[in-house]
Design a protein around this nucleic acid. Structure first.
Length: 129
DNA sequence: GTTCTAACA
DNA sequence: TGTTAGTA
């Protein structure tokens, strides 16, 4: 599932193609970059190169605009989105709580118990787990 | 021919 | 946001 993400983030589309795909003008696409909403990669000749993810984001911005949301509003939406993702990242880096450890240990015992029984062995204590 | 930046009769 | 000028 990671190979796919890499492809979607591969910047291979010139602005002309993006214009046709999104129905946005070059002026608008560049303006959104100025507003730091979609920052494309640049090739050797300083030409903007967009990825499929960039296309999706531009289409999303287009929808927000159609719904009457202004630049400031869209920026806020993405800022809040970034905050929530940062929280989830922090959550993942937190050390395990005692409760987490007990739950993991219990699941492990259940697995061991099942495998052991299939081999004809069993522990009396398994019944209490 | 396409894209870039900067600027506005 | 459109459009145009002068480049690369």
């Amino acid at each position: 599932m990671k190979e796919k993400e890499l492809r979607r983030s591969q910047a291979v589309l010139p602005i002309g193609t993006v214009m046709k795909l999104t129905n946005l003008s070059a002026r608008q696409i560049r303006y959104y970059e100025e507003q730091e909403l979609v920052i494309p990669a640049r090739n050797e000749g300083n030409r903007r190169m967009y990825s499929l993810n960039d296309i999706d984001k531009l289409l999303e911005i287009k929808d927000f605009l159609a719904d009457g949301i202004n630049m400031a509003g869209i920026k806020r939406i993405y800022e809040e989105q970034a905050e929530k993702q940062a929280e989830k990242q922090a959550e993942l880096s937190k050390p395990l709580t005692d409760e987490d450890v007990r739950r993991i240990l219990r699941d492990e015992f259940i697995n061991v118990s099942r495998l052991t029984k299939s081999n004809g062995y069993s522990f009396r204590t398994n019944r209490n787990l």
